[in-house]
Amino acid sequence: MSETVPVRCPACRREHVYTAPSYPCACGAPVTPSLDGGAEPARVAHRAWDEEWVTVSCGSCGRRDQWPQPELGCPCGTVLRVPLAGTGSAPAPAPEPRPPFRPVTIRTSRDAVTAAALYLRWLGHRDIRRADQRPPSGIGLAAHGLVAQVNPDLRPTSLRDVECLWLTAMTEDSDCVCFSLAGYEQDARDRADALGVALFVLDLTGTPQPVNRPADDLRAAGG
């Protein structure tokens, strides 16, 4: 069950009630970060990829995975990072078969990146991180043997985006996958088919939908 705690904004002193989101463990059970309702929330002054994720243990199987850091936006404009209690530690193997993917609703660009990262983790790529090489547009993600691009813009992903992603993958001897909120230009889709780039469209529910054969194959095979 999701945990609810009171949160006071240190900027305007307004009181809020925050409910921690739940995420799907590989075993199928919901995972909810344990919150420290007595600690002062921290203001988010700038973004750093390593600070966007927290390690949380599944209460059912003990598996430890990384999930988005709990945050709350105050009407005064302050973004608050909700403090966590202890997360425990009890590793366990992932069971089979793979459970259904549980998406997160996309409302912001950050949600789109989170949805793509969760999907790649669901496919089996456990070490998702911010890519070292920034793509010409969108956000770059990476894992062992994989590079990905997330385009949260309201314009279709272009031919140049697909070719740059493929070239990056070639230099790193990795597979590549692209996620786009607004779909793809036709020449981008044609080029992706020729190069073997997996293309997914993100709908607003946060569920990636494959739009070409490489994406179908990736979803079927997993990580």
Rank of each mutant, 00 (worst) to 15 (best):
E3M: 15
T4D: 03
V5P: 08
P6C: 10
A11R: 15
V17I: 14
T19E: 14
T19K: 13
A20Q: 11
A20D: 14
A20M: 09
S22W: 10
S22D: 04
P24S: 12
C25N: 04
C25Y: 01
A26S: 02
C27V: 03
A29I: 11
V31W: 04
V31N: 07
V31F: 00
T32A: 14
S34P: 03
S34E: 15
D36V: 03
G38T: 13
G38E: 11
R43S: 11
A45C: 08
H46D: 09
R47W: 14
A48H: 11
D50L: 13
E51I: 08
V54C: 12
V56D: 00
S57M: 11
G62D: 01
R64S: 14
R64W: 05
W67N: 10
P68E: 03
Q69W: 04
P70V: 04
G73T: 04
C74Y: 00
C76T: 06
T78F: 01
L84M: 03
L84G: 02
A85Y: 00
A85P: 00
G86I: 01
P91A: 13
P93Y: 07
P93H: 02
P93M: 03
E96F: 09
P99C: 06
P100W: 03
P103T: 10
I106P: 06
R107N: 14
T108M: 01
R110H: 10
T114S: 00
L120N: 06
D127C: 02
R129S: 10
R130N: 04
A131P: 01
P136L: 03
S137H: 09
G138N: 09
I139R: 02
G140Q: 06
G140Y: 03
A142F: 15
A143R: 08
A143H: 07
G145K: 00
Q149M: 15
Q149P: 04
L154A: 02
L154H: 00
P156D: 01
R160E: 06
V162A: 10
V162D: 04
L165V: 11
A169Q: 09
T171I: 12
T171V: 12
D173V: 12
S174G: 12
S174C: 14
V177C: 12
C178D: 03
L181P: 08
A182G: 01
G183V: 09
G183T: 05
G183C: 05
Y184N: 07
E185S: 08
E185W: 06
R191E: 12
A192C: 12
L195P: 08
G196K: 13
A198V: 06
F200D: 11
D203N: 12
G206S: 09
R213E: 15
P214V: 11
D217F: 11
R219M: 04
R219N: 03
